[in-house]
């Protein structure tokens, strides 16, 4: 196993590849943000923040709580997050969208807590001079959020049981 202290020193000089590839804050973020919210999301207010006389195109995405998943009726959903890392990773994703696409502003928010059917779990909005960039960036942000941001979803089924989505095990 070796001496942890000595290995840590070496590690600082040569950080492993997985750490080096992840950009570290602070980022050069323009009008952009990622927020984990305990309160209901407010699409209209978020849209107003994106409104800019320069922009011509706004693409948005909203994820709503569905009344079923893989055939099971769902009554409500409980989202939890690892806040310190979720906010950091979400902000990285928005910053990446600015690097990849010609956009003017981007906002993404994810709800945590107990949500009823039809509640908004996630909102992403991107404004840009041209619609292609707005769509591409909006889709990039939601795909990356779903794949990388440490947020978990516990479904409460009509049967009374619950399940952590993606963990293939009911509790």
């Amino acid at each position: 196993m070796g001496n942890p202290t000595r290995r840590r020193r070496l590690h600082r000089l040569h950080p492993p590849r997985s750490r080096r590839l992840i950009p570290q804050p602070p980022f050069t973020i323009q009008t952009s943000s990622f927020i984990i919210s305990k309160d209901p999301l407010q699409p209209e207010e978020l849209k107003r923040e994106l409104l800019d006389a320069h922009a011509g195109a706004l693409a948005t995405f909203e994820g709503w709580v569905r009344n079923h998943n893989e055939g099971q009726p769902v009554d409500r959903l409980e989202y939890s997050s690892y806040p310190a890392l979720a906010n950091k990773e979400g902000q990285r994703i928005v910053a990446e969208a600015f690097e990849k696409f010609e956009i003017d502003a981007a906002i993404a928010q994810h709800r945590v807590g107990l949500l009823e059917i039809g509640g908004i779990a996630v909102w992403v909005g991107v404004s840009a001079a041209h619609r292609g960039a707005a769509f591409d960036a909006c889709r990039y942000i939601i795909e990356e959020i779903k794949g990388r941001v440490p947020i978990w979803k516990k479904e409460h089924y009509s049967s009374g049981t619950t399940g952590w989505v993606n963990c293939h095990q009911e509790t």
Binding site: G2, P4, T5, R7, R8, H11, P16, R19, G63, Y79, Y82, L85, H110, A121, V122, I142, I145, K146, G147, R148, V149, P150, I151, W152, K153, W164, V165, N166, C167
Partner: peptide, 20 residues
């Protein structure tokens, strides 16, 4: 996973994420 641990480190194991 091969990160060496040091005294005082804070560790989190992250189950499969499922946002959105």
């Amino acid at each position: 996973w091969e990160t060496p641990l040091a005294d005082g480190d804070s560790i989190v194991f992250i189950p499969p994420v499922a946002g959105g």
